[in-house]
Design a protein around this nucleic acid. Structure first.
Lengths: 199, 199
DNA sequence: TTTGGCATGTAATCCGTTACATGATTAG
DNA sequence: CTAATCATGTAACGGATTACATGCCAAA
């Protein structure tokens, strides 16, 4: 990564206005961006201290809180740092897809194993899509949220990608069986027909 | 990860038969699985030594090689290790999508920035799709490869996902503009219509 | 009052990239 | 002969997860 993205996630949530504790930030992450981002406590708490020292956030003494928990608020400098990060183009993500690796090396163990992998993955993706659809309707129940679009479109990214993967899994299953039963010639013929289904 | 996948990539390529040097393995990775996997030398070379000590691979003295380079061959134990790994279900990948993070926090900097991110990403995906399509036709030029299907379907995963992301970027662009110009009510109405485009 | 969950943190560890060092080979 | 490229490695560093330690609070 080389970028220490954790800090910007923190700044991003604090920029929404409400002062938050580390624990609350973590809960928010899981709830709102959990489908494409995650942070562990071991990352979060040290980072909060670092950001405080750097002057990007400040602790707010909370009279209501009975416990020693501090809430943080973003500073002007913090907002500036967040904004310049948001303007910068996102670095292209390094993909490392272990499932695809197992599929790619499938020839070493034969067809059945690979088909199982595909099926298991497809089930997970199907479940994800259902969850996302459900989440979307929950989001739409609060039409006054000013950042509704942003939540919606990131969520729909998940739906689009999962849906595509499901269709891929079906296609891959078919192609695998075809190649096993009728060889590469049949596979190639089928692929020619499939051109056009994809851009 | 917790899994040290690097070793299995090495074993996977050596299982294809030909003895390979570290450098050659690296080249193969870039060439064949580069679109969903990557390894650095700093990872690869130490791992080759570790696998040798563990008895999973063995160095082959190459009479032809003028230089001190050693090629490696997989052992029976190595094959066993590879197979059990291949049988194990792939752990669900931890996603960390920085682009989506920037989109999600888009409200902090406003619409134009987010639209730029989307457009830039869409261009990259479009280029990827073109590359993949080209690669596919190159693969089909060698119909005798016994592992052709496996290469093909992993490649097509890339095409499916990139294509989906392109369509998502278009949709997201439209929704963002709609919400900015006509508010959440219009956004929600549009989303109702879009249900059905996705599973 | 003790158990379990809330909350905050630190330490160990792992995985991976980057940078550095070095030699061997080939092309000009 | 010299520069560029091929090839192999090591060291330093950084980011992230996991495990551990600890204390507060609420409910049984």
């Amino acid at each position: 990564m080389a970028e220490k993205t954790t800090q910007y996630v923190i700044l991003g949530f604090l920029a929404q206005g409400a002062p938050l504790s580390g624990y609350e930030i973590r809960k928010l992450i899981d709830l709102t961006v959990g489908h494409f981002w995650n942070e562990s406590f071991g990352q979060l708490y040290p980072e909060l201290q670092r950001l405080t020292k750097a002057g990007f956030i400040g602790a707010v003494a909370d009279p209501k809180s009975t416990r020693g928990r501090a809430r943080y608020r973003i500073t002007a400098a913090g907002k500036r740092a967040l904004h310049t990060w948001l303007e910068r183009p996102a670095p292209q993500e390094r993909v490392r897809n272990e499932l695809l690796l197992k599929v790619f090396f499938g020839i070493a163990v034969g067809n059945a194993t690979t088909l199982t992998h595909l099926q298991r993955a497809a089930e997970r993706w199907r479940a994800d899509v259902a969850t996302f659809a459900e989440t979307q309707s929950q989001l739409l129940a609060e039409p006054d949220a000013p950042d509704l679009v942003y939540s919606i479109i990131t969520l729909r990214h998940g739906r689009w990608v999962r849906a595509a993967r499901m269709r891929w899994a079906e296609e891959a299953t078919e192609l695998l069986q075809l190649a096993a039963q009728r060889g590469n010639a049949a596979l190639i013929a089928r692929l020619r027909k499939l051109e056009g289904a994809l851009p």
